Amino acid sequence: MAKKLPSLRSVSTTNKRTHSLNILLNDREYKAILDHCEGQHIHNRSSWIRSVIMAEVLRENERNSPMLFEEDEMR
Rank of each mutant, 00 (worst) to 15 (best):
S51M: 05
D35M: 05
L68T: 13
W48D: 03
R50Q: 13
A55M: 11
M67I: 12
S51F: 03
G39A: 09
H19S: 15
E62F: 06
I49M: 02
C37H: 04
D27S: 14
N61M: 10
R63A: 11
M67F: 12
R63V: 06
A55L: 13
Y30W: 07
N22L: 07
N44C: 05
L21E: 01
P66G: 07
G39D: 09
S46G: 07
S65C: 05
I42M: 04
S20H: 11
S65G: 11
S51N: 13
L34Y: 09
E70P: 01
N26A: 04
R50E: 11
M54P: 02
W48E: 00
N64A: 08
R63P: 01
R63E: 12
F69N: 13
I23N: 04
L25K: 08
R59G: 00
R45H: 11
S20K: 13
C37A: 08
E29C: 05
K31T: 15
L34E: 13
R63W: 01
H19P: 10
L25Y: 09
I33G: 02
L24I: 14
L24V: 12
C37W: 06
N26Y: 05
Y30H: 15
E71P: 00
L68N: 13
L58S: 10
M54T: 13
N44T: 01
H41Q: 12
L24E: 09
D72W: 14
L58N: 14
H41I: 05
E60K: 08
